[in-house]
């Protein structure tokens, strides 16, 4: 499944786009011109990584400063401990598309409870 995100021209370098699917995905255009997609939600607490700080190929969570590698999804240091998923990105005719990963996401506890139908 290929989901359209936005036009590459509409996503300046250094910026992120939050794709409102469930769970949400953030798409980053790095200063070097690469485009990456990862789960938008920090694995520690419900925060949008699209609102975080992009440096090179890493994004720092805006709340508690764990950094995620856009290429692998791995996290550098607590409080987040689990990686985010990475998603395939395709750019065709100037349009960015994401192919969501089929792996199980590492969502933070309250979001996981909500998705499972329980109380957050």
């Amino acid at each position: 499944m290929k989901i359209p995100v936005c036009r590459l021209a509409d996503l300046p370098r250094g910026e992120a786009y939050r794709l409102e699917i469930d769970p949400p995905v953030s798409v980053f255009h790095t200063d070097d011109g690469e485009v990456f997609a990862i789960d938008d939600t920090c694995t520690h607490q419900d925060a949008s990584l699209a609102d975080g700080w992009l440096e090179g190929c890493e994004v720092e969570c805006p709340l508690h400063a764990s950094k995620f590698d856009l290429r692998t999804g791995s996290v550098d240091s607590p409080p987040a401990k689990l990686p985010v998923r990475t998603h395939q990105v395709v750019v065709e005719d100037g349009m960015i598309y994401v192919e969501p990963s089929q792996a199980v996401p590492n969502l933070p506890p309250c979001v996981g409870a909500r998705l499972a139908g329980g109380l957050a």
């Binding site: 939050r18 949400p24 938008d40 939600t41 607490q45 419900d46 925060a47 949008s48 609102d51 975080g52 805006p62 709340l63 309250c110």
Partner: peptide, 15 residues
Amino acid sequence: TYDLTGKLIAAPNLT
């Protein structure tokens, strides 16, 4: 969390 212009840029569950 507020940026240097004062805008609210992040908070737990803000999304």
